[in-house]
Nucleic acid binder design. Structure first.
Lengths: 110, 110
DNA sequence: ATTGTCAATCGCAAATATACGATTAATATT
DNA sequence: AATATTAATCGTATATTTGCGATTGACAAT
């Protein structure tokens, strides 16, 4: 790979929306988010019981959601309590809303 | 990799939303979609002029958007005219709307 | 201090994604 | 028929993602 996304210079908005989308781009992570919302918060162990995946795999998905900013991990020894990051969740909601409503509603063909 | 997404058995809705999200999960593809909406439709060549990427790379991104069902390619020799697939775009809009509104509004902590 | 519990991280393997240049395929024009 | 134009596809290299088991780290409870 000779060219990188970094070198192209997309807008901040585009980068952030792509980051959120990518994080949402796996069924397991969608299920995790759904679970977080249903239970308000939950622990890794809860998810391990529900999903047919190894604990390490789930931990990795949680890490990606955390790095994308969609969830937070709050230490609650010996467990870690995960919650949706409301601020960024709202931001994601706003970005997707813009994507689907404002800029894309003026079709004239097809 | 011993376990595959296929084997787990997510709901159709979850799979489709993940597929759409994944397709949106790259800045270049977001720019392409933006361009498609601004111009109603456009050709690969238009995108090659705008993006600092090789023609083959852009063609590959178009292929992924097409496979995700977000765009259509209509032969218009010797060019191919790309347009947003409105039906699936509406579906994506609805799925994201559900994701952000219905199931995720009852937070009680954090 | 030792033990038990929970979750992150490491190390590895396999699959996918990203990017490019070169080639091929399709079709219009000459 | 020959040429030009446009975009897909092929082949390749590299990076990232996904998954697992094993280990480590953090902390509570004993």
């Amino acid at each position: 790979m000779r060219n990188t996304t970094q070198q192209i210079g997309f807008t901040e908005e585009t980068e952030v929306l792509a980051k959120f989308s990518k994080a949402l781009g796996h069924p397991t992570r969608l299920i995790i988010l759904k679970h977080l919302s249903n239970q308000s918060c939950c622990y890794t162990g809860d998810l391990v019981d529900v999903l047919p995946l190894a604990q390490s795999t789930i931990s990795q998905h949680l890490k990606e959601l955390k790095e994308a900013g969609l969830i937070d991990g709050e230490v609650n020894p010996p467990k870690i309590r995960y919650c949706i990051n409301q601020k960024n969740w709202e931001k994601a909601k706003a970005l997707f809303s813009t994507l689907f409503q404002e800029d894309f509603k003026n079709f004239s063909c097809c």
